[in-house]
């Protein structure tokens, strides 16, 4: 079965063996970052009272990056909730977003103020997304990625796409399961104005990749990526109970 190890091809697609661009993080250092502390100080006030964020298991976050934060996705407010939950450590998070959120100049400006967004053209064209994420991880930062690929329309967890498994196994960084609830009630798909409701963010224990990297040597890589993705989904569902 050892002949099934196709890692070399996947690594080539992810450009993991190419030298890292030393300027990779500078791409995400917008001048708007000066406004970031002000932004979080301002939104902290309504967040605290209007939709207070309750945080569980923050001690499970690895002591330092790189790692992948992979929460369920029910609302446009999910990233803000996780960023708020991680406190000052939100600075090490790099969320992957599609250009869908960039149509409006005003929204674009504030998204860049709020986060180190990594922009990709389409979630369907997954290799640019995975390559961008891999570069961020190799530069020693954390990637925030929604494995469902899209927001749930009814708050229930959708099937996960295995791209997150590819990224975790091939970069070897831990995968942190996160369950977010309440954001769908605050800001479901199609809503513009948030409604008052508490938000809960639960961090699970990181899924370490050593076992899966070892298993990949004697199994089809795709099966291992799928397995990691399913383990992640099960861990998130377990956090929801």
């Amino acid at each position: 079965m050892g002949d099934q190890d196709t890692s070399a091809y996947w690594r080539r697609l992810l450009e993991l063996d190419k030298p890292l661009d030393p300027q990779v993080l500078n791409k995400y250092r917008y001048w708007q970052r000066i406004l970031r502390p002000l932004f979080y100080a301002i939104i902290n006030i309504p967040l605290r009272f209007y939709c207070p964020v309750k945080v569980y298991g923050l001690e499970n976050l690895p002591a330092k990056p790189p790692y992948i934060i992979a929460p369920n996705h029910a609302s446009s407010m999910d990233y803000a909730s996780v960023a708020w939950a991680t406190g000052k450590r939100h600075q090490e998070l790099y969320p992957i977003t599609t250009k869908l959120f960039y149509d409006n100049a005003w929204a674009r400006f504030w998204i860049k103020v709020a986060a180190n967004v990594v922009r990709i053209d389409s979630i369907e064209d997954f290799f640019p997304a995975l390559r961008a994420a891999a570069q961020i991880l190799r530069a020693g930062k954390a990637v925030y990625i929604n494995p469902e690929g899209t927001r749930s329309t009814d708050g229930r967890i959708l099937p996960f796409r295995p791209g997150v498994g590819v990224l975790a196994v091939e970069t070897g960084v831990p995968l942190v399961p996160v369950y977010i609830s309440g954001t769908w009630q605050v800001l479901p798909t199609g809503w513009i104005f948030p409604r008052p409701h508490p938000v809960y963010v639960s961090f699970g224990k990181p899924i370490e990749m050593d076992t899966y990297i070892e298993k990949k040597k004697t199994n089809q890589a795709y099966d291992i990526y799928r397995e990691v993705t399913e383990v992640l989904r099960e861990r998130i569902i377990a956090l929801s109970r």
Partner: peptide, 15 residues
């Protein structure tokens, strides 16, 4: 076949 399994097919042939 999903898109990643499609890539795995090509990865296997590539190898």
């Amino acid at each position: 076949v999903d898109s990643l399994l499609g890539v795995e097919i090509i990865a296997s042939l590539d190898k």
